[in-house]
């Protein structure tokens, strides 16, 4: 029984087909699973493992390296307040403190109604509008404490739902097709490359052997240590 619904499963197949090796699809598939479930469920990691041909532990081990992949549930809205250097100079610590007070949770926590998860974020790269805030990775501008409270009210009332999809949905534009370069052409070119490389390496080996023979073993050894 597949954990992915039929549409997600179809998109998963399209993603895998874009890469020379299946494992490359691992992170895009984790994003896809988060789009379906809001976070990265263990069942999803098992399914991804079987799709890309690794163990579920390898999927978990990879996913936990990345901040955006959430192996624990998060709120419908992930509110990220950047506190890195440019935002620090723009009053980010004060805004984060205010946000913690307004939401009644510490950074990293989720409100009791499960709506909002607050995050003390690293640089979000929107440093001309400080302190920078993003909701589900959509920039909402540099915010004053009052504007932050308004944002929270709007989120809770669903007034920003058009521009801000629920947590887990990353890009909304889909690729409009698979790879177009004929696979035979790619295979032909890769084979030619491998052959050329092998020939070059063989030539290098022969040259090294000739050099060693000419200079004697002692000279070649000291050269090797320096290289």
């Amino acid at each position: 029984m597949s954990h992915f619904d039929s549409e997600t499963a179809a998109r998963a197949r399209e993603l895998v087909a874009l890469y020379p090796e299946r494992r490359s699809a691992l992170i895009p598939l984790c994003h896809l699973a988060q789009e379906q479930d809001g976070w990265l469920r263990p069942e999803a990691m098992e399914e991804i493992a079987s799709i890309v041909g690794v163990t579920p532990a390898e999927v978990r081990g990879t996913a936990t390296f990345y901040d955006m992949l959430r192996t624990q549930p998060v709120g419908r809205y992930l509110v990220s307040v950047c506190t890195n250097i440019a935002c620090l100079l723009g009053g980010a610590e004060e805004l984060l403190e205010h946000a913690e007070h307004t939401l009644g949770v510490r950074a990293g926590g989720t409100t009791s109604d499960g709506t909002i998860t607050l995050e003390d974020a690293e640089c979000l790269a929107d440093c001309d509008r400080t302190p920078c805030v993003a909701v589900n990775h959509r920039y909402v501008g540099g915010l004053t404490p009052d504007a932050f409270d308004q944002l929270v009210a709007d989120l809770r009332a669903g007034r920003r739902d058009g521009e801000i999809p629920p947590h887990g949905t990353l890009g909304r534009v889909r690729r409009n097709g698979g790879l177009r370069v004929p696979v035979e052409q790619v295979a032909r070119e890769r084979a030619a490359a491998a052959e050329a490389r092998a020939a070059r390496e063989q030539a290098a080996r022969e040259q090294a052997a000739r050099a060693q023979a000419a200079e004697g073993p002692g000279a070649a050894k000291s050269q090797g240590a320096g290289a």
Binding site: L18, Y19, S24, I27, P28, C30, H31, A63, F65, Y66, D67, M68, L69, L170, G171, R175, L179, R180, V181, P182, Q185
Partner: peptide, 12 residues
């Protein structure tokens, strides 16, 4: 001919 693939990171 060339194919181009957009690949998302995940926060690192």
């Amino acid at each position: 001919s060339v194919d181009v693939v957009v690949h998302p990171g995940a926060g690192a």
